[in-house]
């Protein structure tokens, strides 16, 4: 599904040049659940952003589902993104001015899903996530766990092929964190590919492969124990 060759990302200001990704070669197959670990500033989030097409690479190739997407225009990247990718963030990133229902519905507005189908899908997901009773609440009226469940629902409502999760449990207590990880595992078991950045070894082991990064490079790739 994903194949990068010498993928680089360099941030330049007038005087300083920072290499966030340094010639990363990476392959993720469909159906995998890959966890990315590493110390702060090692380039994990940058890798996620570039692979999620919300940031463009400075060099190298990036093939997504067989198509070179690294050099696409913003409009085309946005098109690929909305049909194929779902995002889950550490800080949830729900829109404060939209209700739970409207937040989950939002991605389908961009993919022009008909109204009736939107309603059906949102309700199914909210039922599944056990937050249907909160459908008309605003994000700030929910607990952190509930907000992240809404965020996950929003990430999967367009039935993406790949979910990119950036420390999805970082702002949650262990019970809520566990719940989110179970949902992600469940989605993975149903066929969704997941790429997750995390600091937590415990969470990383929900995946089937762990990539460790340092200074913008992939230093090791290991299968998680049960897959050995």
């Amino acid at each position: 599904m994903i194949k990068t060759t010498n993928l680089s990302k360099v941030y330049r200001t007038e005087e300083v040049e920072t290499t966030a990704l340094n010639e990363v070669d990476l392959e993720i197959k469909e159906g995998e659940f890959v966890s990315v670990m590493g110390p702060s500033g090692c380039g994990k989030s940058t890798l996620l952003n570039v692979l999620g097409m919300i940031d463009s690479p400075s060099g190298g190739d990036y093939h997504f589902m067989g198509e070179e997407v690294g050099r696409l225009s913003e409009r085309k990247r946005s098109n690929v993104r909305k049909h194929n990718l779902g995002f889950v963030f550490q800080s949830f990133n729900l829109i404060d001015e939209l209700t739970v229902y409207e937040n989950v519905e939002l991605p389908m507005l961009y993919t022009k899903v008909p109204a009736a189908e939107r309603k059906q899908r949102v309700e199914e997901l909210l039922e599944g996530m056990n937050i249907m009773h909160r459908r008309n609440h605003f994000p700030q009226q929910l607990s952190g766990g509930q907000q992240q469940r809404v965020a996950v629902a929003r990430a999967i409502v367009n039935r993406p092929k790949l979910i990119l999760a950036d420390e999805p449990t970082g702002n949650l207590d262990s019970a809520n964190g566990d719940e989110v990880m179970k949902i992600l595992s469940q989605l993975n078991s149903e066929g969704t590919t997941i790429l997750m950045v995390t600091h937590s070894q415990y969470c990383a082991e929900f995946g089937n492969r762990i990539i460790r990064m340092l200074d913008g490079q992939v230093v090791t790739e290991n299968l998680v124990k049960q897959y050995l």
């Binding site: 409009r75 909305k82 990133n93 729900l94 001015e97 939002l106 991605p107």
Partner: peptide
């Protein structure tokens, strides 16, 4: 933040 989220979800400029 809203702009960021909308862009991630597929909104064009």
């Amino acid at each position: 933040r809203e702009v960021g989220v909308r862009k991630v979800l597929g909104s064009s400029r």
